[in-house]
Design a protein around this nucleic acid. Structure first.
Length: 110
DNA sequence: GTTCTCACA
DNA sequence: TGTGAGAA
């Protein structure tokens, strides 16, 4: 097993992941959702993709995929699409706020 | 492969 | 809440 990575290495990994973008067809293959449904969610404002300059095709980050998977789970649990989207949005918001708080806390340590 | 739109369950 | 079909 490799040595425990430094903070810098973790940060580098995250930046790499953030820049990782794939097309709608690949997202469809990975998540099992038809491309048609992914566009439908996007039209409803549930998903936000970035469009690349060439041809205006949609590009999705791994965070978008996470979001899709979470919504998919909630739908399977009987949530409506809007309710599922709202819940996922709140989860992301809460996590971000907590991590921001952690960041501020760590800055005060030294 | 992707985009969009109109129609239909 | 989605799908199908057609056209670009």
């Amino acid at each position: 097993m490799s040595e425990h990575p430094s903070n810098e290495e973790w940060l580098f990994d995250y930046q790499l992941l953030s820049k990782l973008v794939i097309g709608i067809g690949e997202v469809s293959d990975i998540t099992g959702l038809p491309t048609r449904k992914i566009r439908y969610w996007e039209d409803k404002g549930i998903i936000q993709s970035k469009k690349d300059c060439e041809g205006g095709t949609r590009k999705y980050s791994y965070l978008d995929i996470k979001k899709i998977i979470l919504i998919q789970e909630l739908l399977a649990d009987g949530y409506t699409l809007d309710a599922a989207a709202k819940k996922v949005e709140n989860r992301i918001k809460n996590i971000n706020q907590t991590m921001l708080g952690l960041s501020k806390y760590l800055d005060q340590q030294d």
